[in-house]
Design a protein around this nucleic acid. Sequence first.
RNA 1: GGGCGUUUAGCUCAGUUGGCUAGAGCACUGCCCUUACAAGGCAGGGGUCGGCGGUUCGAGUCCGUCAACGCCCACCA
Length: 842
Amino acid sequence: MMRTVPDKPALEGIEAKWMERWESEGTYRFDRSRSREEIFAIDTPPPTVSGSLHMGSVFGYVQTDAIARYQRMKGMEVFYPMGWDDNGLPTERRVQNYYGVRCDPTLHYDPGFTPPEEAPEPPMSVSRRNFIELCHGLTAEDEKVFENLWRTLGLSVDWAQSYATIDEHCQRTSQKAFLGNLERGEAYSQEAPVLWDVDFKSAVAQAELEDRERPGSYHRIAFHRSDGEPVYIETTRPELICACVALVAHPDDVRYQPLLGSTVTSPLFGVDLPVMAHELADPEKGSGIAMICTWGDTTDVTWWREFDLPTRAVLQQSGRLQEDTPEWIDSETGRVAYEQIAGLYPGQAQRKMAEMLAESGDLDGEPRPITHPVKFFEKGDRPLEIISSRQWYIRNGGRDEDLRQALLARGVELDWIPDFMGVRYKHWVEGLNGDWLISRQRFFGVSVPVWYPIDAGGELDFEHPILPDQAELPVDPTTDAPPGYEESRRGIPGGFAGDPDVMDTWATSSLTPQIAGHWDDDTDLFARVFPMDLRPQGPEIIRTWLFSTLLRSHYEHGVLPWAHASINGWILDADRKKMSKSRGNVVTPIPLIEEHGAEAIRYWACNGRPGTDTAVDFGVMKIGRRLALKILNAARFVLRFADDVDPAAITEPLDRSMLASLSEVVAESTAAFEKYDYTRAIETVEKSFWTWTDDYLELVKARAYDGGAAGASAHAALQLALGTYLRLFAPFLPFVTEEVWSWWQEGSVHRAPWPSVAELETHAGDPAVFAVTSEVLTAVRRAKSDARASMAAEVASVAVVAGSESLALIRQAEADLKAAARAAEMSYSEGEFSIESVLAEA
RNA sequence: GGGCGUUUAGCUCAGUUGGCUAGAGCACUGCCCUUACAAGGCAGGGGUCGGCGGUUCGAGUCCGUCAACGCCCACCA
């Protein structure tokens, strides 16, 4: 092959060049003819495309790519698809803000609709179908931005395998899996209290909650015993007194023991309430006795369940108190009081209640401001309320000890990288307190694929849902008629009603192995890639994505979805603060790539260990760029000599010694990669490479220029080493290694075989020759540096004092050493190691 | 309140089953245009390994404890 080494090698332009070449040559195309044992399958996280690009996106994906590239060179066929998570609330929210629209499912589809140039204020209402079309359009744009980023970074994904969680294939997979869960009794619907976001008007799941510290006020309020004596409770939610069903105190609390089993009446409303005893009532909190409402918090739900208390729900899905006076408030004064707060939001109602209670004398003192944790939907802006509603659930072990134990066992079976991440999974599963709520009262998602019969009285029969035919999937029950019904029977007695809900994003993305592997329509492919090898992901979604994927696989296939889970760390800014939009310290990757180059960004990412928080560090990126440049320049030197080299010509002890060291590096790097320890791998290779360029290249330079048999040995050794280093660096620095490889080798370095000890060992000698020779060279350099002389300064003599074994090693490389040190004479004597260099007169 | 992780040079980090004077890069200092590389090279200074206590012939490495920071979880009266 013609060798084409540029005169002035540069990094500029090579990224774009190889990005295109890899695509056109199908370098990373997956070959599905290979058997399962020959395939390495990766369950890539589908990024939320409506989210912003940030360094966290870059970090984990590059690390995974390094592993993928290693596996590919090792000879595995790598199944490395990319998905986009476009389904769900984040997209809806982005579309609402971007176009200034809101979805109103009661409107009819407008085929000619185009959104206004400027987002209108207030937002305009559009039909469900128009809204969904806007979602599809915007996510398609967002996906292009992400794909461009991934390509720029050099991710070796097979773009032919891409999927999007809202596409038809994903919807079909998601609905099929749901119907399987339903058939086996793993999914069910139930009318129950749920955590409700009043802005999104949707239920949310336990995994999507977060606590936020919020200001509140303790109101000390009198309830009344039958003898007229007050019983004071302290509450932050006086507006829920109208929904109170009981009071509760600790059974051992002597203050309230006399009250247990008696009845008190609520202030203003005059409702009779029993006083109960429960261990969860904390004598230290407030006055030690609390009111139970339906429902102010999750403890209320617990008490309500355990005591089988009546349901007195007043909060509506809108977040307002209901307009009509509840029937349990049956006194005239009670009704008058309720009318004051009817239809208000909780905050307004609370202020009104405080006024009314002060007036009636039931408020003791002023409300006392406090700060307390309040449950929020992680993407929400207002506190969650608890309301009663019918929702779909998948059993997850939260209410079934056997299942919980089985899922904990799966967590133990999984290989966690790093190990301690398994603990997070364990604690999450142990802490589950309810089944997984998967239905959402939203629009841009996969429909819950069921309909309900409507009886003659107009009531929906939720116990006997009508299911679709498999062949019809995916279905949208809000527009499609169920099997055996005409569309005209929708919503009428004796007809049917479609379930209006969609499934949560996680209900679909928990099936990424099944989606990517085409479980529903390509059993041959699925058998070749499933169970997968690796799930790389962030730590914050262990409780969601990892857990739910494991659960679905456990149900559907009875196995772990993958053998290994690699959890990356957090990205921190220079001040070691976690990056977040609210802090305003997010660093976006595109400008960084433009400034430092993709290789530099990759180098930074590959130096972040799994599970270890990593700071964005421009210094590290700079080093990566320097390394890439060094590879170019070193290669230019190596390849300036003979075109045809013969490895059999490698006879010089120094050359054979260098190759022996390199062989150790190959072994160490391979062992590290086998343990998914890519940082160890790059570290080992990099350290060795710098020694190679700084010492070995300097030592053999003169001999290489001189030629002859000794020169031929150097030429061959240099090329053998270069070819090895390029392959060792290829997983990390794919562009520069490919560029140099193309100067003198056929094919892609990324499809070249991973270096082996076997290919080097026949040319390897004693690694100590190179090591000790380097030491002597360093000592001579130090002498020159101390003398403030140029490294090119002539040295009259170098006196080496060392042990006899070391002396013997050094003598083997004497000629190289003299040339590199510019030394006229070398002398040797036995003793404590020391080097004495006498510089020649200037 | 519970759990996990981190704490090593000014900065970012290595330090693999406990073993010679604790390492790298950046930054800093000095020298050097040496025909692969000046967006470079060579050399150098710099740390009582968060505190305390313990095990051991020997501890950055193991155990206990405390502290700071980060993250996760927790029943919000």
